[in-house]
């Protein structure tokens, strides 16, 4: 009841009572608005979205009711849970390897010897996965699960490493001078200034790059359908134009990915709470 009151009744009342002021506030640059006003904005935007969807989208897209119904059916059939778990396993394995590889290569650029490597790897983000598929298949001796992991790790790492190297290269010179003037060794300087000092930014980069991983998921999973996964299931449904099921699965992916995003947010708050001290709450 209190949730209903906080997120629905109060915003609606606020809008009714103070509609003009709310409208003015939400179109004022950099205005910090209350939670109630923000909830009003969300409700208005969702209402517009759903109205447009029902009015014009139904000829092209399945309507929300069909999607939810399809989702319910998929969940009842049970298969989708297994496919989701397959996908999650693939993603978690790949993310773990991506983190290790990306951290190793990015932080290795602290040493001049490895800077060309970091530079070259970050430029590999311009390559296409299709062109690399054959080379990766040979490299993995035809093991399709490993092939998918390799492609995933490659495709995310090249972007993540680029983000990390950009973060490292943008550290102010005064940070290094500061560490040196208090007699820290260059290794300790690297730890405190480069690794610890930029960790919140690295977590943000990780969050963005791993979100991108979900977008690549279908493409990577359909390379070998025998392993299954939500991407394979979605591609199959797409082939028969069962769009309500496709959208239902998209919705499940969205929920999972948002959960992942929230976990990264929580991790940042727990480990780097200091990074939030001077942020304007918008």
């Amino acid at each position: 009841m209190s949730i209903l009151k906080q997120y629905f009744l109060q915003p609606v009342m606020a809008f009714a009572e103070n509609g003009f002021a709310t409208t003015k506030d939400v179109f004022t640059p950099n205005k910090v608005i209350s939670k109630a006003k923000m909830s009003t904005v969300v409700i208005v935007q969702l209402t517009i979205l759903f109205t447009l969807w029902f009015m014009y989208g139904s000829q092209l897209l399945p309507n929300p009711y069909d999607i939810l119904l399809s989702m319910w059916k998929l969940l009842q059939a049970g298969k989708v849970i297994g496919e989701l778990l397959t996908t999650l396993t693939l993603i978690i394995q790949s993310m773990a390897i991506t983190i290790v590889v990306s951290f190793a290569i990015s932080y290795a650029t602290i040493l001049p010897f490895f800077r060309p490597l970091g530079f070259i790897v970050s430029k590999l983000r311009f390559l296409t996965l299709v062109g690399l598929q054959f080379a990766f298949t040979i490299w993995n001796h035809g093991d399709m699960h490993n092939l998918k992991i390799s492609l995933f790790v490659f495709s995310v790492s090249v972007f993540f490493i680029d983000s990390m190297i950009t973060i490292i290269n943008s550290i102010d010179k005064e940070r290094f001078i500061h560490a040196r003037t208090i007699q820290l060794s260059e290794w300790r300087t690297a730890w405190e200034v480069i690794i610890m000092g930029t960790f919140p930014k690295v977590l943000d980069a990780m969050r963005s790059n791993f979100a991108m991983a979900w977008m690549m998921l279908t493409m990577i999973e359909v390379i070998s359908k025998s392993d299954g996964g939500i991407g394979v299931m979605m591609a199959d449904q797409n082939k028969y134009l069962w769009l309500d099921a496709v959208f239902a699965m998209q919705l499940m992916i969205l929920i999972l990915a948002m959960g992942q995003d929230a976990l990264f947010g929580l991790l940042k708050k727990r480990t780097c709470g200091w990074a939030f001290n001077n942020i304007e709450k918008r």
């Binding site: 005064e174 940070r175 405190e192 000092g197 780097c272 990074a275």
Partner: peptide
């Protein structure tokens, strides 16, 4: 230095 850098973490 001018901006008094410290270790923020």
């Amino acid at each position: 230095q001018q901006r008094y850098p410290l270790f923020d973490h």
